[in-house]
């Protein structure tokens, strides 16, 4: 039995679908999926062309955490909790911007595995900036112009927000780490409450990379410490993916069209330096660098 069918409409090399397939397989398909409007919804849930092999619901862009909470509570009320886990697959915009109901789910600690598929912009509608778009990224709503060089703000720290809510399990992972995704999802499935897993998902179209580069670029985000792979249980840092030789951020940035202007514009150097500072701060915060 497939849990996510072939023939879906994702771009060739889509990071989202790598993550989704691994999450569903980790749960052996025993789950209910709630999915807000976005890339994943559009490529998988056209009427009559449904790609899902598990029970699935799409309601709106801004309410997925509440919809999932409702499924979870209904299953409890009707004594059907054993049927499966309630899983959210939401994009970064639906999570960090318009996802108004996320804090209520955390607050009441509904039994939900909330997975944020972070491709760092509204890719479905053609690459607009979201709260999880990183500094310096050129998007269609933070374009490169005479006085602006892409997004001039920081990436929202959803991990800190999830932790501040007292979420019992908070983790990051990447679509290029299938084994890590599976382990973390299985772990989350064994914990009661509102769990949060943020998965970095390379986007071929939005990021301007080739399918063949997806894994390399995804790995570089980790190897530069721009995307720390961490895991918290009950607020305590449990695991961190450590690095022997942390790479300079240029190696990650230069492969992607969304950061190309940083290498051609004279002001780009300053922004690259600032991005390097973010990576250094991440490395320090999570003690990522292994001593030589």
């Amino acid at each position: 039995m497939r849990f996510f069918g072939r023939g879906h409409g994702a771009c060739p090399g889509c990071g989202l679908t790598i993550a989704v397939r691994n999450v569903l397989e980790a749960l052996e398909g025993k789950c209910f999926v709630a999915n807000p409007t976005g890339c994943l919804e559009i490529i998988s849930s056209q009427y009559g062309k449904n790609a899902w092999g598990v029970p699935y619901i799409h309601s709106l862009f801004d309410n997925v955490a509440a919809v999932a909470s409702g499924i979870s509570e209904a299953l409890k009320a009707m004594g059907r909790e054993d049927e499966g886990k309630v899983v959210v697959f939401a994009g970064d915009g639906a999570t960090a911007d318009i996802g108004l109901t996320l804090h209520g789910m955390f607050d009441r600690n509904h039994d939900v595995i909330y997975i944020c598929l972070d491709n760092e912009a509204y890719q479905n509608t053609g690459h607009q900036q979201s709260a999880l778009t990183p500094l310096g990224e050129a998007t269609t709503t933070t374009p490169v112009g005479k006085i602006m060089l892409g997004k001039m703000g920081r990436k929202k720290d959803m991990i800190a927000i999830a932790l501040a809510h007292g979420s019992p399990y908070v983790a990051t992972s990447s679509a290029v780490l299938p084994a890590d995704i599976r382990r973390k999802v299985k772990k989350a499935a064994g914990i009661v409450g509102a769990k949060y897993i943020q998965i970095h998902c390379p986007c071929v179209t939005g990021w301007g990379i080739d399918g063949k580069e997806v894994v390399k670029v995804g790995n570089l985000a980790i190897e530069t410490a721009l995307y720390p792979i961490v895991e918290f249980e009950n607020g305590k840092l449990l695991t961190v993916r450590k690095l022997k030789d942390r790479k300079p951020v240029e190696e990650y940035l230069k492969l992607q069209r969304r950061f190309r202007h940083l290498f051609t514009n004279p002001e780009g150097k300053k922004i690259i330096a600032e991005i390097q500072r973010i990576a250094d701060a991440n490395a320090l915060k999570y003690n990522i660098d292994l001593k030589k």
Binding site: V67, A74, M78
Partner: peptide
């Protein structure tokens, strides 16, 4: 369930009703 807004309350019921409640 004590929802955090009417918007959330209705959304919770969408999930619950779809689940057969």
């Amino acid at each position: 369930i004590t929802a955090e807004s009417e918007f959330a309350a209705a959304s919770i019921l969408v999930g619950a009703s779809a689940a057969g409640a």
